[in-house]
């Protein structure tokens, strides 16, 4: 069970997100949901590949002198790869979602800062395969929390007549506040935790992710009911 929570629950949560986003895209054809769907597909694939390649049976998949062998030595690369994809995808997503020019500019600046940080740590210092830098990862999470707060501020500034609970993006972003704020604390603790505690912390991270994905999927099915209610 512990192993399931630590390893398998994360791809399952991504798959749940994918289902919710695909259903939403299928109904409303918004490009941003399709991009997020692709992101989760990519994330689930990369994470799963990271887990599989480090398992005992696959460590000899690539010869030791091959440049690909490094992929089987640890799955840090999968998280570091997601780190950069994460920042690009979510910066784009919120850039599309926010209307205010100042807010858009803030998103662009945050994106550039994170890319510079990634380049500095993972490429200049060559930590991409060897290290999972949780402080840097925490910064991405904090950046995404900032994006969500900008969106929530926009919601309160730009009141509409439609029921807020019938807005798919609202549920999606509420899930992101919960997940990324929780994850920020988790990755900060992760660095200094012992092996056993790391497992527990990561299990909690996966549980939060799964709850948020489930919340989105439930919201998708509940939205038609909310649409019928005036407020």
């Amino acid at each position: 069970m512990r192993s399931f929570l630590i390893n398998e629950l994360e791809p399952i949560a991504y798959a749940t997100y994918m289902i919710a986003l695909l259903l939403q895209f299928n109904q409303y054809k918004h490009e941003r949901h399709w991009v997020l769907f692709l992101y989760y597909f990519f994330a689930a694939t990369v994470l799963y590949a990271g887990i599989v390649l480090t398992e005992d049976g696959y460590t000899n998949l690539f010869p030791k002198n091959s440049k690909w062998h490094i992929l089987t030595e640890g799955n840090n690369w999968s998280y570091n790869l997601l780190y950069i994809v994460n920042i690009f995808v979510f910066s784009w997503f919120f850039y599309i979602l926010l209307h205010d020019k100042l807010k858009k500019r803030m998103v662009a600046v945050c994106c550039v800062c994170n890319v510079v940080l990634f380049t500095y740590v993972d490429i200049v210092f060559r930590k991409f395969f060897s290290d999972f830098n949780s402080t840097i990862y925490g910064l991405v999470f904090l950046t995404i929390v900032l994006y969500t707060l900008l969106y929530l501020h926009q919601l309160l500034r730009d009141i509409k007549e439609e029921n807020l609970l019938a807005d798919f993006d609202f549920w999606l972003i509420c899930g992101y506040v919960l997940y990324y704020l929780g994850s920020f604390v988790i990755v900060i603790y992760y660095q200094n935790a012992g092996e056993h505690q790391r497992g527990n912390i990561w299990a909690m991270h996966n549980i939060i992710l799964f709850i948020c994905s489930l919340m989105l999927l439930t919201a998708y099915f509940r939205i038609p009911t909310y649409q019928k209610r005036p407020l």
Binding site: L152, L155, L156, I159, K160, E161, L164, L165, C174, V177, L178, L181, G182, V185, I186, Y189, A193, Q197, N200, I201, M204, I208, L231
Partner: peptide
């Protein structure tokens, strides 16, 4: 400790979201 802290944080965020919805509905009215 981290689990308690995260749980507490999530509880605060959840309450914050509920309050945001209520505030939104008030403003909407």
């Amino acid at each position: 400790m981290p689990i308690i802290l995260v749980s507490f944080l999530l509880l605060v965020v959840a309450i914050g979201i509920i309050m945001l919805v209520l505030l939104y509905q008030k403003k909407q009215l």
